[in-house]
């Protein structure tokens, strides 16, 4: 004990040490590698085609005389095309699709997860443990195993809002993802910390489970709810394989698909526009992430899983 209490005052004095310098060097190199591709993306999106193909890395003042090519952004949007159905740019259509789909999934996941997590954490239900094991089992089912039958089902389910099936509709993009095992897990962990006695007290005052969940549990769990919402939003925003499989029309594409199609069609010749398109997809998310990053890391380290 005495040794410990004596030590800090002596050792915490900061002096230059090679070990410290090496640690900072490695960490900074790592951070540079992590961030550099984003920087390169934005830089390329502001160049002329000429300096892209000559490989000039930094054409601007004070190293060169080229102006920033902001017009690459509107040019990228017009190059992607025009949606005759809604009379807007296809880019806007992609963005609307991505936002609608992601927000709908997040809203659905929040509702289904909050109810299920509450039932698992705070209610006495026969067979609860079995059901929870069943839930655990779904994590073990790899998405590749179910993707073929799921895609087939999208052709078979009738569309209640029109003719045809779920294929090439929002239904296919949204409904299969309205429950998240990750969300249930994370919220359950959080809800379990609320002592059951609190509910018993509320119950005596005539408060039922539903009202207790809405007025006490959810407000207490705001950080966990934010984590679930953000992480699910990022996953939904990132989804590519499924929308590629179950949509056909350009009007139903999400940003990720639009980006990949653009890469296939124009990526070879219009790199600066390609990078402008990528920046428009990535930069808003990165800015958003900087303000909310605490919730991401907390959510991920609490459960350690990806949906």
């Amino acid at each position: 004990m005495t040794v410990r209490s004596l030590q800090p005052a002596v050792t915490r004095v900061r002096r230059f040490s090679w070990t410290q310098a090496a640690i900072y060097a490695v960490l900074t190199l790592g951070a540079f590698v992590a961030v550099f591709p984003f920087f390169h993306m934005v830089a390329t999106s502001l160049k002329t085609y000429g300096s892209v193909i000559t490989g000039a890395f930094w054409p601007w003042f004070p190293f060169g005389d080229e102006a920033l090519q902001w017009q690459n952004y509107p040019e990228a949007i017009t190059t992607i095309g025009w949606d005759k159905e809604w009379n807007i740019y296809l880019f806007s259509r992609y963005a609307i699709n991505s936002i609608v789909v992601s927000l709908a999934i997040v809203a659905g996941v929040m509702i289904t997860s909050a109810f299920a997590a509450y039932a698992f954490a705070q209610m006495e239900i026969p067979g609860k443990n079995f059901l929870f094991l069943l839930l655990l089992a779904t994590i073990m089912i790899p998405s590749d195993l179910t993707i073929v039958p799921k895609a087939v089902m999208m052709y078979q389910f009738p569309n209640p809002f029109g003719t045809g099936s779920w294929y090439n509709t929002y239904l296919a993009l949204i409904i299969p993802f309205l429950a998240s095992v990750f969300g249930i897990f994370l919220l359950r962990q959080f809800f379990m910390q609320i002592p059951r006695d609190l509910f018993d007290a509320a119950f005596i005052d005539g408060c039922g489970h539903l009202r207790y969940l809405m007025t006490i549990v959810l407000p207490l769990s705001k950080p966990a709810l934010v984590s679930v919402a953000l992480i699910n939003f990022i996953w939904a925003w990132d989804s590519f394989k499924w929308p590629l499989l179950v949509t056909r029309d350009p009007q139903m594409r999400v940003l990720a698909i639009g980006l990949q199609q653009f890469l296939v069609q124009e990526g070879g010749t219009k790199v600066q526009l390609m990078m402008a398109f990528s920046s428009m997809v990535v930069v808003p998310v990165i800015i958003f992430y900087f303000f909310t990053q605490k919730y991401f890391t907390e959510g991920i380290t609490t459960t350690g899983i990806k949906g």
């Binding site: 591709p37 990132d238 590519f240 990720a256 980006l259 990949q260 998310v285």
Partner: peptide
Amino acid sequence: TATVASASV
């Protein structure tokens, strides 16, 4: 970041 975007970069 969206995989498609960073993979394109």
